[in-house]
Design a protein around this nucleic acid. Sequence first.
DNA 1: CACTATACGGAACGACAGTTCCGGTTGTCA
DNA 2: TGACAACCGGAACTGTCGTTCCGTATAGTG
Lengths: 209, 209
Amino acid sequence: MNEAGGVTTAVRGDGEASADEAPVRPMRADAVRNRRLILEAAEEVFAAQGVSAPIDAVAERAGVGVGTLYRHFPTKEALFEAIVLTRLEELVAAAAAGAERDDAGEAFFSFLRTFAGKLSNKHDLIDALGAEGIDIKSQCAGMAGDLESGVETMIRRAEAAGAVRDGITPKEVLGLVVGLCQATERPEFDGVSRQRMVDVVCAGLRPQA
Amino acid sequence: MNEAGGVTTAVRGDGEASADEAPVRPMRADAVRNRRLILEAAEEVFAAQGVSAPIDAVAERAGVGVGTLYRHFPTKEALFEAIVLTRLEELVAAAAAGAERDDAGEAFFSFLRTFAGKLSNKHDLIDALGAEGIDIKSQCAGMAGDLESGVETMIRRAEAAGAVRDGITPKEVLGLVVGLCQATERPEFDGVSRQRMVDVVCAGLRPQA
DNA sequence: CACTATACGGAACGACAGTTCCGGTTGTCA
DNA sequence: TGACAACCGGAACTGTCGTTCCGTATAGTG
């Protein structure tokens, strides 16, 4: 329902350790601190409760008022995307790394398990990747594209190595793993069950007799 | 002693098949008609939109007011359960039938495909079976138990026949298929993709080398 | 230390969904 | 046909959630 920029005011000098100096405009110290508190809180709350978590819960956990939260992120969705984007970046990096490895087959399946592991207890990511009917927005779309590219490379190479069944697409693989994780997250399953369910999907992706 | 029934007023003479003859009191003709209209509407609306569909949408589609709807079902959840229960019954029947077949392996996988097919476009069922954290209530719980029993029988027999991997539990199988369908329902997949994704899960359930 | 742009907090607003209530309608039976 | 109980419709109530507004507090500066 809006354009969704991602971040509002001139972000800057966020204490993220990087040395990126943009001489736009300095941010007040308390603002910087609160921004980080909000992001940390959102990370936890969204991970635990998914997109549907009330924004007040995030504000409360961060120890700020909702007004402050909206000063930093124009919309709930913007905040959610900021979190998801970070998570997606990790996955894209993992996919890119896997696409470089020599042992294509092992690289692919190892990535899948990493992927499933990263989704574990991250309801936000699962919600974002599993959003039915609703397209992932803005920057997330690009990230999702990057993720698919990485996976595609791994698939092609693993296929060539005879380690993966023919014809499967990255979208299908990602969809399967996301669906798997939605199932896997249910409280009725213990670690053993989860492991076995991941095994089932991995086994199904191997070349078929 | 008359609360948590699921149905409000003295239902009667509805095609329930059971022999429970309660000479309580007959239902007025228009009430019977409306009740069926509501159920039919709910079936369509919930299938298309899942649990989250507004109750007004059901009332409107049925051509009745919300008041009427609430006269027949004390709560949205009660109506939802009524729909899901019907759907679950079909699945239980299919599972029971499969448990009888001689070709245990084929019976199991054939059931799985039927299962996946029945979940197709039935967001209500997917929501109900995939409800995270929220337990399926009342009669649905019993039905879900019956479903598991049927699946368990099929699994054991298929295992004995060497057609299914060892150690898998009915809960895991059902979880996998529900997760699969959550993925499969996304609009980005066409029939070919869906088929392939079902194949992947089925293949993964076969005995592993 | 005073001053101001910046930032903060949280009450208030509007949208939406589930549920209740009650005046009016209608099927049913004598 | 008349009368009553069952039934209907939908406005109104309640609670939740996202978002806005504005008076107050404070970091940064001269």
